[in-house]
Write a protein that binds this DNA or RNA. Sequence first.
DNA 1: AAGTATAATTATACCCATACAATTTGTCAA
DNA 2: TTGACAAATTGTATGGGTATAATTATACTT
Lengths: 234, 234
Amino acid sequence: MNKYQAVAQQMNQFIQQNNLSQGDKLPTLNDLAEEYQVSKNTIIKAVEMLESHGIVYQVRGSGTYVRGRHRKGFVNLTDVHGFQGILKEFNLTSDVIELKEIEPDENIVEILKLKEHETVYYLKRVRQIESRPLCIEESYYNKSYVPYLNEDIVQNSVFSYLRNDLKIDINFSDFFMRIGKLNEEQAGYLNLKPQDPSIDIESIYYLNNGHPFDYSLIKYHYEEAQFYMQGNKL
Amino acid sequence: MNKYQAVAQQMNQFIQQNNLSQGDKLPTLNDLAEEYQVSKNTIIKAVEMLESHGIVYQVRGSGTYVRGRHRKGFVNLTDVHGFQGILKEFNLTSDVIELKEIEPDENIVEILKLKEHETVYYLKRVRQIESRPLCIEESYYNKSYVPYLNEDIVQNSVFSYLRNDLKIDINFSDFFMRIGKLNEEQAGYLNLKPQDPSIDIESIYYLNNGHPFDYSLIKYHYEEAQFYMQGNKL
DNA sequence: AAGTATAATTATACCCATACAATTTGTCAA
DNA sequence: TTGACAAATTGTATGGGTATAATTATACTT
């Protein structure tokens, strides 16, 4: 791991363990550089990383301060695979509806930039929060990049499997959100009525080389799901 | 303006004007540094800026590439006050319902960290896209930071007034999103029925010194509004 | 004594130069 | 076709400056 990442991680741990909150001041950059035995620019990069994750903010001429913690119960769209994890304070479970290898339709081929006859893993899950249905998720993974999946893996976090075991790093992602309607089957999974609204989020995840490898369509329970996101300085 | 901002702006212009699209390769960092007559560090910072705005992505060992343009018709939550602007390809108009100076309730006082007897501007607008109602917006501006507003200003973009005239820069912001329901008055403004769903977004905007100065609650028309956002590398 | 302007100090932001590391891509030989 | 190697390109780390905003201390005035 790189120095600035290691430092950022340690600083984050320090903040969490000491339960620092909104407005608490951190040592100056010079002191931090001294403390962690790195150069000024490296500590700056570490703090920038924490800043981009919404953990601290910096004020020129004044110092570096801790940002208020996010409200609980909100799905964090900013930090999907970052320091905090999604809704980690709650008990998340999954029912796997379907997992199979398929040759997908044109739409998916286009989105994932698949070549002729390339296949994908199709995964359909219903995810619960504290045993209440939260969302229906349909995902397509390019099999060239994700060569193997099984029920065990998809029962838990697919992303941590990708990161920890396959050493796949996500570079960036696109999210599209709108309001949809539930059909009968979907309503059944979410304990709602057909024609009830749903929060539909399409996601496309890209690898470090800029190639898309995962397309997901998630329908969230409109009463259970709340989202948090964060804007940073232009 | 700083060098790296100026360079980023020029590079962005170049990308837009030459209509570069997904996967198009930019010159190497060395060449760009040469071209714009800045150091390698500065060009790196400029490219990082473009990257964080979702305009380009970088692949180590390979080069810098243009990201695909976002779908049209989506409110860009990533880049609220950045290069692209919100829905600038559409005709956005506003009806000002109310603009007044008030002493707000406890909730607002808490969120905006107001001192005893500090007042705020309260602004209520209905915003239309291509003459169709898009959202109802209620905003509270801390009068200590936004000393003056009038109907003319709020008819247009409040943010560009803040940036260009008051020299107020936003450091970061929080967004909370959930599904709400419309009451009779709100349904009237949006041409919907009472009890219809709405997309509710709460926003808090913070100044460079970390102080919140604007709290907004927006109810979007659930059929008109679609949102785009973007995740960046962890 | 209290408030106000001014100066000094502190702290982050920006810019530059350099060195080397890590990754991808192209080349060439076996 | 494959593998090894070289070249190209971005990423990381360090060190040194200058600029600018915020804070604190000082001096001054009333």
